[in-house]
Design a protein around this nucleic acid. Structure first.
Lengths: 340, 340
DNA sequence: AGCACTACTTGCAACGTTGCAAGCCCAGCA
DNA sequence: TGCTGGGCTTGCAACGTTGCAAGTAGTGCT
């Protein structure tokens, strides 16, 4: 069914090479020949074979975005931004989901077999650490995203988790909250996001001369709504309730919100809530969610740019680009939505 | 950097063909030879070139999932299901987002150039209609998803929109609601989801001997939270308020919910709300959302299966598979969550 | 010793494309 | 008439892989 250059060439009575010249708009083709070839191309509905081109040219025009979970809104929104940025440069983005499964991460990123289809990779690791990534077999360029601290000598874009968490916590302190809890701490060595945000949380409390109350810092296994709901239920079972909670992402916060409201408590009157990621869900919840808003467009733009530089042969030292963030103050802390 | 079969062959002192035999676990290789080749493979860190294999074999092991918007939770959740199903069969799914842009849809689906990298396509069209799809140039098999009625002689998986909408509306009628509104009607010829759901809505009202009140059926351009919020604001500006709203998806419902609550009205006491899609957000909103729940796993399973059949040469008549759905009754209509 | 058979290994060609360099033909000029 | 040059076209080879069929060597049997 799919016509090849050879078939077109036979039909037009020219060489394969000439057809290729027409397809690629080479100038050195006689007008009359070009017309004849074009007719044959149209009649046969010729479409270039992308695989053969890739093999020949060494470029596919595809870059892969490898993420833990696509149905986590933060990643979905980030994906949109990456696709938009890559399209500007004429690249098509292809997304793959690892579920943080080390086997899948390894297959996609470390070994070249599947990765080799793509000119480059943008990768948000969950399970793979710096040690793994340093001895990557594939030579496909990679840009790392996300909070995991990886010292792999690779390009890396992240946000200042400690600083952002400190900012979020300070906001709650400045509102006069006395018992500020945190949801999302992690111990697992491969999941450092939680640890970094806890650092920031502690730093803010210390800076304000407050004590860190261990039972108010709740670990969770994942960062999903269900984890937030469960952790909040634990907090509400304490003899003395918190009057504010910093959740390490918006999904945790939305889960916590659900639990708080279902117990008949009010947000922010009884408990103030801050999230992290600024996903759309948090802008439409009631109350809307105060949150740390990472500049996703900037992250995407930098990631794509860094990768394209590598594809163009840039071999300078690996870059570590911090991304900007702001605190979006909404109803869940002040009762007012300043972002509308 | 990337070693080829030839380099490995030279190092091991055997032919290229023998190395290939080792790589592919052909039995007819002497143990001693196999060991020597294996050592060379390891030393050079050989990784098969996927592009060359694809060109040679005509199979890439990749299928593309082409969707309008990845950051719409319904699609994100569906994507997860498709990836899981495809993985079972050893296929890797690659996702692309079109934003419903006809140009992008056409480039990805109609013309073979980019599509040719993939063995097959699962496509949820937004802009492209049956007429477009019928004269597709590419021979890559496609399975269509979603509500658009496409009579293109292609495999297609959809849910019974009319029936589902009727079920949702009937639920509101049975609760005794008197003024039932609808949000999400569409006129645009290429967006038939809204029209089909309006059909179901009307059918349910008629069956109950009710009149359809035109001003209670609100069109929206998109199916996003913002559209739902705006449409609900319009409904609340009517002289006589509705006491129930059927929203054509959960995002519309969440937007509407936000508007209702911000006006100090209660759900479901003052206004009951039903959505469509059963996204996770709706399970964690307060109140949680009564909704039509399409069986996403079934949809994904059927889509992948249908596609794999085509890849295996199945040339039977195109199938139209309906997917199952249920009504999940939660707090937004009854105040009780029956699904927990 | 000769033959058949098995066990293993190999060269060739092809998948569809494009870079390279050479080729052809005709016009223009001496 | 012969030579040069430009405009246009072409064949070859290669990207890295694998199917096919043929090749070699060694073994066992008669």
């Amino acid at each position: 069914m799919a016509a090849t250059l050879r078939e077109v060439a036979e039909r037009a009575g020219v060489s394969v090479r000439t057809v290729s010249n027409v397809v690629n708009d080479f100038p050195q083709v006689a007008t009359e020949t070009r017309a004849r070839v074009q007719r044959a191309l149209d009649e046969l509905g010729y479409q270039p074979n992308a695989v053969a081109r890739t093999l020949r040219n060494g470029r596919s025009g595809l870059i892969a975005l490898v993420l833990p979970e696509l149905d986590v809104p933060y990643f979905a929104e980030l994906t949109r931004a990456v696709i938009e940025q890559a399209a500007v440069a004429g690249y098509t983005v292809v997304v793959d989901q690892t579920d943080g499964d080390p086997v899948r991460e390894r297959e996609l990123v470390m070994r070249g077999s599947r990765a080799a289809m793509f000119d480059g990779l943008i990768f948000n690791p969950l399970a793979l650490g710096g040690a793994d990534l340093r001895n990557r077999a594939s030579s496909t360029p990679v840009v790392l995203l996300g909070e995991r601290v990886v010292q792999g000598g690779l390009d890396h874009i992240m946000i200042d988790n400690v600083g952002a968490a400190e900012l979020a916590t300070r906001h709650l302190i400045e509102l006069g909250r006395q018992r500020i809890a945190a949801i999302g701490d992690q111990f697992d060595e491969t999941r450092q996001t939680g640890q970094l945000r806890t650092q920031g949380y502690r730093a803010a409390l210390r800076a304000a001369g407050r004590q860190v109350i261990p039972e108010l810092v709740r670990p969770t296994e994942y960062f999903h709504r269900a984890d937030g709901a469960a952790a909040m239920a634990d907090l509400l079972a304490l003899p003395e309730l918190p009057d504010a909670v910093f959740c390490y992402n918006d999904l945790l916060a939305l889960g916590a919100l659900r639990t708080i409201l279902s117990r008949g408590l009010r947000v922010p009157d009884d408990i103030a809530l801050v999230g992290f990621d600024d996903i759309e869900d948090g802008r439409y919840s009631t109350p809307s969610l105060t949150t740390i808003s990472p500049d996703k467009t900037q992250i995407a733009k930098n990631a794509v740019q860094l990768l394209l530089n590598r594809l163009d042969g840039d071999s300078s030292a690996p870059a570590e680009l911090p991304a900007d963030y702001t605190l979006q103050i909404r109803e869940s802390t002040t009762g007012q939505d300043a972002s509308r």
